[in-house]
Design a protein around this nucleic acid. Structure first.
Lengths: 150, 150
DNA sequence: CTTTGTGCAAACGATTTGCAGGATG
DNA sequence: CATCCTGCAAATCGTTTGCACAAAG
């Protein structure tokens, strides 16, 4: 399969390919498609959602390959997992530090900018713990779920 | 099976039983054992750990019953899930708000007191989001993993 | 005595793995 | 052309479910 088929924005495609190469990864259409798709959305999809989205028009990648692509992308530091619901693993191409908002009604997840909150002081946690970073998860209700069936 | 067999601290046992009754739950030895065990530890065990721990000396509860007990305890608001690693659901009998520290090396989870951090201002999130609460997760290395094999 | 819980085993769903053929660099 | 990736199917692991029996109130 040709990589061009899975990407309609040539300029960005080149950038994505460069990123993958720069990480020493082989650039395959499947990897490219997974990463480009993740970069192009902000809703932290599951593997199932990626699978449906990628293969919508014609087969691009199998499920097993999506799993292995995601693993490779994770190891390269290009993608991270987001775990906020039991049994659901979501993926996020935004690896800069940021927080999350989760709607307790529909499960939707939305990013919150890092500087939405003042920096937290980690230095006076219990002695012995070495803190490397942190993240805030906010729980609540999204707009859509506040005004049901309208 | 008799409840006394699974609890060696009679005074606390009575309190646990009262709590369960107060929530309108039937008090069974299995439920009691699950909840008492969770109350007595702070390491957020998985179902597998609970299963091993409870049945260590003699059979107390089956796996299916632990799942159903945990579900009932959750619905009663006595227990909550903690999700910080893929594929691993942990349980916590501390339902007061608090934060978590996760060791990226061994996966151990430790509670952080709620007032370890100044309260965050949730009011200026994106308009439309209704925030109900939040939680901080700190990532790092625990004491044990900082000084390997000693 | 009525209702709800338990235990077993089968069912399930998400993720992982083994392996043969195919694509990448 | 050597290495690594892909796709398929089978295997695995955590969790859920159906059902007959037992226990709680």
């Amino acid at each position: 399969m040709d990589i061009e088929k899975v990407m309609d924005k040539p300029q960005k495609a080149a950038a994505v390919i460069e990123t993958l190469k720069a990480k020493g990864m082989r650039v395959t259409p499947q990897r490219f498609a997974v990463y480009a798709n993740l970069l192009g959305r902000s809703d932290h999809p599951t593997v199932e959602q990626l699978l449906n989205d990628l293969n919508q028009d014609f087969p691009v990648s199998s499920q097993a390959t999506i799993y292995s692509s995601l693993q490779a992308l994770q190891e390269a530091g290009l993608v991270r997992e987001v775990l906020l619901e039991p049994g659901v693993t979501r993926y996020d191409a935004n690896v800069d530090r940021h927080h999350h908002f989760r709607c307790e009604s529909c499960g939707e997840i939305e990013d919150i900018a890092w500087d939405a909150f003042p920096p937290l002081e980690l230095s006076h946690l219990r002695a012995g713990l070495q803190a490397d970073g942190y993240e805030v998860t906010v729980y609540g209700t999204c707009d859509r779920c506040q005004t049901p069936n309208m």
